[in-house]
Simulated assay, not measured.
Amino acid sequence: MINSQDLEFFTIIAGSRSLAAAARKLNVTPPSVSQRLQNIEVKLGVKLVERNARTTSLTDAGQRLALHGQHLLQELQQLTEDISDSKLAISGQLKLVSSLGFGEKHIGPLAAEFQNLYPNVTIELNLSDIPKWSLHNSPDIMFYIGYLPDSSLKRTVLAKNRRMLLASPDYLRSCAKLEHPNDLQHHRCIALRENDEDATMWRFTHKATQETATVRIDPVLASNVSRITKNWCLDGQGLIQRSSWDVKQELASGSLVHVLPDYELEEADIVALLSSDSVNRSKKVTLFLEFVQQRLPERLNQN
């Protein structure tokens, strides 16, 4: 029979590209990783991993063990935490995934604050322009903004997110007329490519009439880093879509101007995605989610 240490070990194997990569994470030699894996396979009487020189892949049995083993470890962690309610009892690793700009500006600082409150928790935050959920190396929480495809993941809304069209005063002084979304076809547009969204399809709704307009832009500049696209806009290079929380200072200073204010862009709520429902989450995950729900609105209003 395998034990919790075996499950923890195999979870690392499942989340690694190769046995050598797993050995580096475990700070042991590759032969010792191979030997321990073989011992687990002998215990279960099945092959868990297909091995070759450079990579590994899970067999069907390995995939089932990785998925259900992770859930069992979470339940064990929750049981341990439920027995004691002290802060020091909240321990273990918290794995987070977020988009680049939002993660850098908000989730990173909040993660540090939380770790100071719960010193026995270690936090790993991975940022990406296309944050994804991996079945075998899944995070505890993924923070997401924008169009959300159908998913079996549990969704918690953290804050409403209003997007707006923006340009610098210098650009607006010299550009063609801009009275309707269709006029964008004659303008310099800047695209932010993230979250697998269609970055060149901009959709508008008139606030008063509810008239809709969909414009396919041909961006003169595009990037997967939000800070770069905003800097281009500040330099007068063209128009961008941006969340209101990310341009509060620029709007207040006048360095950016809200364009076509009679129209609304598609809203994209800021959400937390989790694999487990509230009943089955570990206490550290629940506490961090509650912490972000409490602190994030304050940060969005301040910045």
Rank of each mutant, 00 (worst) to 15 (best):
M1Y: 02
M1S: 15
I2F: 13
N3Y: 08
F9T: 08
F10E: 03
S18F: 12
A22D: 09
V28E: 14
P30C: 06
P30H: 09
R36I: 09
L37A: 08
N39G: 11
V42M: 12
L44S: 08
L44V: 05
V46K: 12
R51F: 04
A53R: 15
A53Y: 11
R54N: 15
T55S: 13
S57T: 13
Q63N: 09
L65S: 08
H68S: 12
H68M: 12
H68N: 13
G69S: 07
G69A: 03
L72R: 05
L72P: 06
L76V: 05
S84M: 05
L94H: 05
K95R: 11
L96H: 10
S99M: 10
L100A: 06
H106N: 07
P109M: 06
L110W: 08
A112M: 11
L117E: 09
Y118L: 06
N120A: 13
I130T: 13
L135I: 13
H136M: 15
N137P: 03
N137D: 15
S138F: 08
P139S: 11
D140I: 03
D140V: 07
P149N: 06
S151M: 04
S152R: 04
S152Y: 07
T156W: 00
V157P: 01
V157Y: 00
A159P: 09
A159S: 15
N161L: 04
S168Q: 07
S168M: 05
Y171P: 12
S174Q: 13
N182G: 12
N182K: 08
H186P: 05
L192S: 06
W202L: 06
R203E: 01
T205F: 00
T205N: 00
T205R: 00
H206Y: 01
A208V: 09
N224S: 15
R227Q: 11
I228F: 13
T229M: 03
W232Y: 14
C233Y: 02
Q237W: 08
G238A: 04
S243A: 14
S244P: 00
D246V: 00
D246M: 03
V247E: 04
E250S: 03
E250W: 03
E250P: 06
S253P: 04
G254N: 02
V257F: 03
P261T: 06
L265K: 00
D269Y: 07
D269C: 07
D269L: 07
L273R: 01
S276L: 15
R281L: 09
K284E: 05
L287N: 04
E290C: 01
F291A: 02
V292M: 02
L300K: 00
